[in-house]
Simulated scan of single mutants.
Amino acid sequence: MRRLALSAIFLFILGLTYPAFAQSQPFLLKPANAIATKTHLILTVPLANKTKLDQTASEIAARFGVTLTAEWPLKSIAVHCFVVEANQQADMDSLIARMQADKQIRTVQRMQDFKTLESRYSDPLFPIQTALTQINAVAAQRYSTGSGVRVAVVDSAIDASHPDLLGRLTPAKDFVGVGQTIVAEDHGTAIAGIIAADVANATGIVGVAPTAELTSLRACWQAPNEQGECNSFSLARALNFALLNDFDVINLSLGGPPDPLLEELIQSAIEKNIVVVAAWGEDGVATFPASVSGVIAAGGPTKASIPAPSVDVISTAPHNDYRYVSGSSVAAAHVSGILALLLALHPDLPTETLAHALHASVRQRNGDPMIDACAVLHSEAKDTVSCK
């Protein structure tokens, strides 16, 4: 895998520097969907041993009159994350200001809420995948199907038992529940199908990169027929895992308000040459994290974003089903799949080169701009890839 040697050295040094984290330690956790309230703050302190962290947490709680709700080491940026709850009457702006001035606290911010970006439709499924035709994926798949590329899907839970996803995913990680929760949710399952649905099972649909390796990093939760929800804590833990485990692509088909901690993690991923793809948003303006410099934005109306299919796309649904999905979340999934095709051929390309290849491969299709997957491959392998 790319960057494997550097990651191994980093983790070895981290283990020497912070011996308490060299082995598994008990940390206070609470389901993420139980802490997304207006009275919670998320703060970081320098990474230290468990005893020191416990003392720091107690001192902060006593000094500011807050209650520790959850915690987790974010080893990828060498900090420990605390989620604390203030009382209902607290002046949150004043509390944040006092915490920002505190020498023990590195960063402090409000707990932010995020949404998976999808416009839901009840239309019947179409018998063909027009999206693959729109992006010229079949021509691209003559040269690459994404083999060996690892894609982290930070989203709601993927149904790993779906016949089009069976055997396509590594073991999932759940950053919403406490412990491993076995669930299957609409949004994550649809995004996974678009990126990498099985090509060899003669069932259902074909993904853009059907042999790429997917991992479900569940950071969002979703009630049936409802939009998915996430928060700063669950997303931070998922991104931390993705950084520490050296994924090639991180797909973020979600959006919300600017978040300093998440931006720090995303920038750290970009610095490690991990490609971060995010959904543009649904209001014509880039939402966070698509707005972050270095992130590849998908599905937006401007030339800063990569145009990809985002309306009436058939994909996988929980419980062996299929459904019709729309939204910039869908566009991001297509772009992540195309990047997997390219990285399978050229695993060491930097993010800047990948972004340039995407922007240079936008073509007019039926009068509208659309990414051409085969042209993306051709841009980096002109002598071996023909899109005719």
Rank of each mutant, 00 (worst) to 15 (best):
L262E: 10
P171D: 01
G284K: 09
L239I: 13
A172I: 13
S291A: 12
S234D: 03
P257W: 07
S232C: 03
G300N: 00
V313E: 02
T211L: 04
G228L: 05
L214F: 10
E271M: 14
V275R: 07
L262S: 05
V249K: 00
I306V: 15
A278N: 00
L235R: 11
E229T: 14
Q222W: 06
G188C: 06
D198N: 14
A304I: 11
G188Q: 04
L265P: 11
A192C: 02
P257C: 04
A269I: 12
D186Y: 10
G179R: 04
D312G: 13
W280L: 02
T189D: 05
E282S: 15
L261Q: 11
T170R: 13
T181R: 14
L261S: 02
G294P: 07
A219N: 06
E213I: 15
A236R: 05
A297I: 10
V183W: 06
G256H: 07
L244R: 14
K173W: 09
I182K: 11
S234L: 04
R237V: 11
V276A: 09
N245C: 09
N273P: 13
G193T: 15
R218Y: 08
I205N: 00
N231F: 13
A209Q: 03
A219E: 03
E264K: 15
G179D: 04
E282K: 10
V295G: 04
Q180D: 14
E229C: 11
T302R: 08
V277L: 01
P289Y: 06
S315T: 07
V285P: 03
A279N: 09
I270R: 15
A242M: 02
V208W: 08
E229K: 15
I296V: 13
F233S: 05
I306C: 04
G281A: 00
L254W: 09
F233K: 03
